[in-house]
Design a protein around this nucleic acid. Structure first.
Lengths: 339, 339
DNA sequence: ATGGATTTTTAGATCGATCTAAAATGAGTT
DNA sequence: AACTCATTTTAGATCGATCTAAAAATCCAT
């Protein structure tokens, strides 16, 4: 009795045409119903909706995209999927875009520009409406030019490829550094070290610049700057170098919590008490920071909020492609715990 | 002079038609060139390829999909993107599928079945050729039936939704448990505890079953089984309960390395030496396991290999939809370190 | 009724790549 | 020159949803 199963048993998925026949209307009307158009009479709408659910219809986005030239999908490219920061950021982005009926393709460039380039190419082929990008280290500035030529809207997050150009959303790293320094200064610290990421990204440069610039204004004696990767071993190494420096600092600010946790561990191993013998401040406020012993003091960079803002900026850009670029800074929060 | 820029400055992206005109051939011929068909003469091919690169062409996958009904994309749904295990697994999958010119949509269900369902729905709308799925906890068994009705090929990874049905690739958890038990037994341990995941998944059940079943055969006195989440706090709690148990075990096997690391930390906090006062064995061999102090002994579950096998099985299934289901078990490796 | 305005529905063209079936070209043979 | 046979190229239909422009249905006032 069911009309959506062909006689031979081999089947296609149902299309507008099938629904139209079932409901006794035209394809155009069905299309209007699908898109919630107010044009269609309530009685007709009901009949069509019944038909839709009776045939097990699946919307064919590819066909719609072909006709309209717009897809409702967004490419999201991050350099390091394992980083909890990005997981939360993704959640923020999804939350906003899903409410708009959009889907994000998530891609992990693993800090490799070629891989990133392949993804972007593929995303273009899939007809995405734009991308949200945290560029891999070493990405050529020409990428931005290309994206612009291709008319592919792009919101950068966390890192800026080149200078301060283009749409971007990021935590206010400079402010975070200043907040940390001000707090340490008021607690009596004078000599303070910095462990920035060894990656050459704007996220690292901004921290270093703010750090260097704040010294004179607060009469601080800013200690060694030791670049450092996020592995515990490297963090141990870096803090070792800080401890060995001529005029030993009494506090250290770390690029992120992973490094800070590594530092804390190494301090304990050496019999030093974090928070007393050496103050340690991280960045990000990852879940582990609160659970660690001792609990880590950190500059919370609010990844979910960054994601929300990025998605909103992206939507604004789609709606108004030619308005001037926007740069959004998300204010960090200083979370003081035991270190 | 360039023919791909319209007079008014407003532009469309180039299509087969533009290339065809530029090269003085038909669209059909250009299509053949794009798909590397051997039908086209070398001289013609060269002319067309020149035209292609001169107009900045972007392949429109949506249009191709509409005609052919096949897309070259694969949905990958994981429950927990932050877990390093999944990051490596994803890398293994990508490695195989990319070599075939396929792209994966990565989606994070965050252990929520509704979210997972939305993704699968959307993936269908996008016309993916199939999915690779690590089902969220609490996924209804009816999902598998539906996927089958929809003719959407699905390879399960790590966890099986229901019974042992369907295509699946996973580490051989039972064997891993047996390897760990055999090693502990040969090192003289008799009373051994298990800290399985508190999630109700096949990955946990298989560990428990193998654990319980191995006791008699090896004359072991298997100690308390304390379900436990992956947070350090919960791990500390669980090992506390193990230590307090009547006949205190001398070794513990943990569901994964995160739990094992939490256990190690708690043991140290209590002044017990992991590896001497209590042997600890984890699962997974995440990067941190090797770097930890003391370095963690663990059952390596080889995520990259699981990913590779899953992708290969997926490709086999696409090529031969009606051959019987396959279940692939990836042999684990026991990595003995200090604990 | 009739005309006009409004609401609702629809036929048919369209997006870009691929497929089918057939046409054009060329090479080789008699 | 006429005829195969193999190679290369192509016109036109097609996939499924949406758009445009116009037709059909409905309503209201005269």
């Amino acid at each position: 009795m069911k009309s959506n199963e062909s006689v031979s048993g081999e089947r296609r998925t149902a299309t507008l045409k099938d629904i139209a026949e079932q409901a006794g209307v035209s394809r155009a009307t069905v299309s209007l119903v699908l898109r919630q158009s107010p044009l269609v009479a309530t009685e007709t709408r009901a009949r069509v909706e019944a038909a839709i659910s009776s045939v097990g219809y699946v919307y064919n986005r590819g066909a719609a995209r072909l006709r309209t030239g717009t897809s409702g999908t967004v490419g999201l490219v991050v350099p390091e999927i394992t980083n909890p920061f990005f997981a939360e950021l993704t959640a923020g982005i999804d939350q906003v875009l899903e409410a708009e009926g959009r889907l994000t393709f998530l891609a992990n460039s693993n800090e490799r520009p070629e891989r990133q380039a392949r993804f972007i190419q593929r995303i273009r082929e899939e007809g995405a409406d734009g991308i949200i990008l945290c560029a891999a280290e070493g990405t050529s500035p020409s990428l931005l030019t290309q994206l612009r030529q291709w008319h592919l809207p792009c919101v950068q997050i966390l890192r800026l490829i080149d200078g301060e150009d283009g749409d971007a959303v990021r935590p206010d790293f400079r402010k975070g550094i200043m907040m940390a320094l001000r707090h340490l200064a008021s607690a009596g610290h004078v000599r303070i070290a910095l462990l920035p990421s060894s990656k050459n990204t704007s996220a690292a440069r901004e921290r270093i610049e703010a750090f260097v610039a704040s010294g004179p204004s607060q009469a601080l004696d800013l200690g060694p700057i030791v670049p450092c990767s996020s592995s515990p071993a490297d963090a141990a190494d870096a803090i070792g170098r800080v401890l060995a420096s001529a005029d030993r600092p009494t506090a250290v600010i770390c690029h992120n919590d992973l490094i800070a946790l590594g530092v804390v561990r190494e301090l304990k191993r050496r019999g030093l008490k974090p928070g007393r013998d050496m103050s340690v401040i991280g960045f990000d406020d990852i879940p582990e920071a609160a659970n660690a012993v001792p609990a880590l003091s950190t500059v919370a960079t609010r990844p979910t909020e960054v994601g929300i803002q990025a998605a909103k900026l992206f939507l604004r850009r789609l709606a108004a492609p030619d308005t001037p670029h926007e740069q959004v800074l998300v204010a960090p929060r200083l979370v003081l715990r035991e270190t």
